[in-house]
């Protein structure tokens, strides 16, 4: 039984829009075990992305706490948070979010530019990451020269190149056909099974969710199961 990498206690997120308060997350408590592949499900607007963003250190909670590897992420200041994200979290977006003017190789290398690694070390890491996602032969391609599924796999390579403990993916198959989706999901499962990474994946597709080792459901900002 591995230790919990994420512990969330009575976490709330309330957005203020003019006079109206929108409660995106309502006193959530959740533990995520290290190495787990968690599928976070729920209808649109239920707060999935919000929860993922808070865990990944992109957004801050209104109340409650979210600890990742024992660190209360909300207590870090802006630049500490940037460094923390760089070293501990890999992020996969629904829309891939590759930098269009950079090649697959350069996109994957980006997070490493923030580390102390030299050029040769970076090259090794990038090549390994591209191999894991099966795109070593596409290193020189620009995003627009890749298919959606390939783009998303490059994005996964970018997420794992720094060897983070945590990989978060927000609807990673939302923009993909079913074949590409299978490939991407397969890579994510490998990450968790073989590389021991903790993967948190937001999806509203039950078939995608089935790739996870555990599924949880959000409903109007509350965990329903």
């Amino acid at each position: 039984m591995s230790a919990n990498i994420v512990t969330i206690r009575s976490l709330s997120k309330i957005y203020q829009q003019g006079d109206i308060n929108v409660t995106a997350l309502d006193k959530i408590s959740l533990d995520i075990a290290s190495g787990e592949f968690l599928s976070l499900m729920g209808p649109s607007g239920s707060g999935k992305s919000t929860l993922l963003h808070i865990i990944a250190g992109i957004d801050r909670p209104t109340k409650g706490e979210c600890r990742v590897q024992g660190i209360d992420v909300a207590k870090l200041n802006e630049s500490q948070l940037a460094d923390w994200r760089n070293q501990n979290v890999g992020f996969v977006f629904q829309t891939f979010n590759l930098i269009p003017v950079l090649t697959a190789y350069e996109n994957v290398e980006l997070p490493l530019l923030l580390t102390r690694m030299n050029r040769a070390e970076r090259r090794k890491q990038v090549e390994t990451a591209l191999e894991i996602v099966g795109l070593a032969d596409r290193a020189k391609h620009l995003p627009k020269q890749l298919s959606g599924g390939q783009e998303q796999r490059v994005a996964i390579a970018r997420a794992l190149v720094t060897d983070p403990a945590l990989v978060v993916a927000d609807e990673p198959t939302g923009n993909l056909d079913s074949h590409s989706a299978q490939e991407v999901l397969g890579v994510l499962r490998t990450l968790s099974h073989d590389a021991g990474k903790t993967v948190i994946m937001v999806t509203h597709d039950p078939k995608a969710a089935a790739f996870g080792s555990r599924q949880i459901h959000l409903e109007k900002g509350e965990l329903s199961k």
């Binding site: 802006e78 940037a82 460094d83 994200r85 979010n97 930098i99 269009p100 980006l110 923030l114 970018r158």
Partner: peptide
């Protein structure tokens, strides 16, 4: 906008 946000998520500073 989104690209810049992505860079920030990856850890690049303002």
């Amino acid at each position: 906008t989104r690209e810049i946000g992505t860079l920030r998520v990856l850890g690049f500073r303002r």
